[in-house]
Structure formats: structure tokens, C-alpha cells
């Protein structure tokens, strides 16, 4: 049976679909977080050099990966919205931005928490932390530009262009920061264990999947509110049971 995917690109049908799908991502996400963090905090062995402090990586690493991944996904959605003029893709892009920014922030925060016991200072100008900071700035730029344009269409298109430029720039920024870091012989966060224990890998992977599911669930919930806000004057919104009550 062929599914008509285009049917779901209409905001009215996607609103319904997103409502149905969101719980299917939210609950597994909660369970996976619980399992992953349990393995990370209680099952995984203590690291020989870093003792217990290393356990923050079970949050830090997945958050960093997600922050970069979400930026790319967001830029792709934005590009599709810009090129094919599909409203829903642009809405998805703006729904993803706050989640991406949140992950970038968590990554910085946990990085600082990890840095304190490791190097005795909250912040080191390490290549990865610095790139993460710049990524957070890029998210802020996207959100700020979108928020300051009143016309939603112009906001979508302008911030889409910014996201595309940003995603082209991310690798350039990353390599330049890395280069800068090696020139100045800064310290680099490296997990010292040559081979990761199996339990550590499991924990990190489980938390990563949990973060992923969380991002999808939250983006779907957020896109529902964006759809409602944008389509508030349409017939189908007026007919929604939640709008009538």
C-alpha cells in the first residue's frame, strides 16, 4: 500500500500526526534515560585516572553530539522550506532550534563541571568546548533573527538562509578553532581510557538514543504549537475540540 506522504506535509494533517507520534517518542525516551543513566552511574566501573568525576561524560558526550546533529537537521529542514516553499519544513526548523540550543548549553555546562575536577578550572579554551560555544551563538542568532521578524514567511526564509550559511561555516569554524588550539598548545579534553569499558559504551549509547527520542518528542510538541499559532485563523483550527472548549 502506498502511503501518500504529501498528505502529511499539510499542517492540518501533520498536527494530528504529530500529536499521535509524540508520546511514542516521549515515553521510550524517559525509559532510556533511566536505563542509560543507571548503567552510567552504577554499573560502569570507576575510571582509574579520573575516578567518579568522569561519569559526567554520559551526559556531556550525547549532548554535544545532539547539539551538532540537530543544527544540521535544522539547516536541512530550513533549506527544504526555502527551496520548495513548504511551510511545514520551516516550522520544523524553528521547532528544533531551542532544543539544539538547550543541548549545546548542557554540553557547555557539563563540560565546565567536568573541567573543574580534571584541570582545577571551570573553563579551558579547549577546541571542542570553544566550538560548542560558537555553535550556541549560532543557535542564538537563528532564534533571535526568527523572533525579530514579524512576518512569519520572511522570518522563515531569512532564518533559513542564516542556518544554511551557518552549517557551511560550522566545519570552517571547527577546523580554525582546532588549529588555533594546537598553535597555542591548549589542553584538550580527551578520554584517557584507551579502550572504553563495554558498560560505558552501553550507557553512552543508551543516553544518546534517549536524547534523540527526547529531541523528536519535544520538536513534535513544539511544532504543534507553532502550527496552531500560525494557522489560528483557519477553519480547521476553529473546529479542533481543544480550540472550542
Amino acid at each position: 500500500m502506498a502511503i501518500n506522504w504529501f498528505k502529511y506535509s499539510a499542517p492540518s494533517t501533520f498536527y494530528w500526526l504529530a500529536g499521535k507520534l509524540a508520546p511514542w517518542f516521549a515515553w521510550p525516551s524517559a525509559v532510556l534515560f533511566a536505563v542509560g543513566l543507571y548503567i552510567g552511574f552504577f554499573v560502569a566501573p570507576t575510571d582509574a585516572q579520573q575516578s567518579e568525576a568522569y561519569r559526567i561524560i554520559f551526559l556531556h558526550v550525547p549532548a554535544s553530539i545532539m547539539s551538532m546533529f540537530i543544527y544540521l537537521v535544522m539547516a536541512c529542514y530550513a533549506a527544504v522550506g526555502l527551496i520548495f516553499n513548504t511551510r511545514l519544513s520551516s516550522m520544523m526548523a524553528s521547532a528544533l532550534a531551542p532544543t539544539g540550543a538547550l543541548f549545546a548549553f548542557i554540553s557547555l555546562w557539563t563540560g565546565a563541571l567536568w573541567g573543574k575536577p580534571m584541570w582545577g578550572t571551570w573553563w579551558v579554551w579547549d577546541a571542542r568546548l570553544t566550538s560548542e560555544l560558537i555553535l550556541l551563538f549560532l543557535y542564538f542568532g537563528f532564534i533571535a533573527l526568527h523572533a525579530s521578524i514579524d512576518d512569519p514567511r520572511r522570518a522563515d526564509r531569512a532564518s533559513a538562509l542564516l542556518a544554511i550559511i551557518g552549517s557551511v561555516n560550522v566545519p570552517i569554524i571547527y577546523f580554525s578553532v582546532k588549529w588555533w588550539n594546537t598553535l597555542h598548545q591548549g589542553s584538550t579534553v580527551k578520554f584517557t581510557g584507551t579502550s572504553m569499558h563495554a558498560a560505558m559504551q552501553q550507557a553512552m549509547f543508551t543516553v544518546l538514543v534517549a536524547c534523540w527520542f527526547y529531541a523528536i518528542a519535544v520538536a513534535l510538541a513544539r511544532v504543534r504549537s507553532i502550527i496552531l499559532e500560525r494557522e489560528r485563523n483557519t477553519q480547521w483550527v476553529a473546529e479542533l475540540p481543544e480550540a472550542r472548549s
Binding site: I134, G141, L162, V177
Partner: peptide
């Protein structure tokens, strides 16, 4: 806010 992060590589080099 938009442009400064994009200019960081120029600053570095």
C-alpha cells in the same frame, strides 16, 4: 549577533 560568530575564522587566521 548573527555575523560575529561567522567571522571567528577570520579573526583566528
Amino acid at each position: 549577533l548573527l555575523v560575529l560568530p561567522l567571522c571567528i575564522p577570520v579573526l583566528i587566521f
